[in-house]
Simulated scan of single mutants.
Amino acid sequence: MNEIAPTTGSASGGPSEETTKVDATLGAASRFDGDAIFRGLVTGAGIGVLLLLGGIILVMVGGGVKAFQTFGLNFLTSSVWNPVTQHFGALAPVFGTIVTSLIGLVVAVPLAFGAAFWLTQMAPARVAFTVGMAVQLLAAVPSIIFGMWGFFVIVPLMAQYVQPTLRHWFGHVPGISMFVQGAPFGTGLMTGGLILAVMVMPFVTAVMCDVFSSIPAVLKESGFGLGATRWEVMRNVILPWSRNAVVGSVVLGMGRAMGETMAVTFVIGNANKIGWSLFAPGNTIASLIALEFPESPAGSVKLSSLMALGAILMALSFLALAVSRVLLGMSNRKEGR
């Protein structure tokens, strides 16, 4: 007897019910393409960030065109800021921004590195968790609180103890005396830099802690297995592995220091002049904009000068980022990466 082969279609020769269900599922999947929607969303987000950044740059540069047309390149080299004579220059606030930011980073980065090293490599887990939470809470404190704390605590200490002591020790030393001169008011570039260091340190510490904690355990255990100390493991294993992120944390801190406004305004002295003394009053771009912007009429040269200062501040931030990328590239090339 001949065997009857199983049929895959219906009795009338059409597609079976299973085939119809598969076709319907494939059609629904083609109509709802989740990958395409996700791709469009993330592409739109990336383009949106670029458009936002470009819009900010255009507003700043466009608003500062009048200042450059009025003063030319002299706007970058002049330290005069006189609203009465309508003569404005950017050199004094740019100088104050760079000096206070460098002071803040010089003080903050070693402290942040030491704190991150202790929290991730030496401290007990419970203590590290508690101190890490305290560091994160310190980063959440509003900047104006730091300014008030600096004005009522740090400024008197600088005026009564720090500056007189340094002037007594180094006031007659050639090459150093110029950095400690000035009346002991307590306000100045050094005080502003110290406040920035306190504000920047939690951000840098938090980033370093996350990076040091994310290194694969096998790398550290290999170093310890070869007899290396904690510091040798940090220097020869952890730091090379996390170099990019560490430099990124420093650049993040520099950006925060350059853009800080109210805290620096409380303690820097707000004087538009250049002085080599670390205790001389000065100004920064952000603090000058905060103080002068409400009194700048629309369309005035003063308002245009403030907008130009904003564009210069963005350029300084981009320059710091570019320099860090160049240094990382040079370091990677030396290591053959």
Rank of each mutant, 00 (worst) to 15 (best):
K220L: 06
E232D: 02
M122F: 11
A123E: 09
L166A: 13
T229N: 00
Q121K: 15
M158W: 00
V127E: 05
T229R: 01
A115C: 06
L226C: 13
A217C: 12
L166E: 05
P142Y: 07
S143F: 04
P124L: 11
W169K: 07
A123I: 02
F185S: 10
G182L: 14
E221N: 01
M178F: 12
P124M: 12
F170H: 07
S222H: 01
G186L: 10
G223F: 08
I238D: 09
P216Y: 03
M190Q: 10
N236L: 14
G223D: 04
L189N: 12
A128F: 08
I238S: 01
M190G: 06
W241F: 04
N236A: 05
V198D: 14
H168D: 13
L194N: 12
W169Y: 09
E221S: 02
T120A: 07
V204E: 13
W231V: 05
T191Q: 10
M148V: 11
F185P: 07
T187H: 12
G132I: 05
V211G: 02
M201E: 06
G186Q: 09
S214Y: 00
I144S: 10
G114I: 09
I195E: 08
G193K: 13
A228Q: 04
F170N: 06
M178P: 02
V141H: 13
H172Q: 14
V237M: 00
P202N: 09
G225P: 00
V153F: 09
N236G: 09
L219M: 11
Q160E: 06
F224W: 00
M201Q: 08
G182P: 14
V211H: 11
A139Y: 12
A128I: 13
P216W: 08
R230I: 07
L189W: 14
V198T: 13
V207T: 12
M190T: 14
M201P: 09
F203K: 01
V200C: 11
S214N: 03
W231H: 04
V173M: 09
P164S: 14
P142R: 04
L138Q: 11
T120V: 10
L137S: 05
T229C: 00
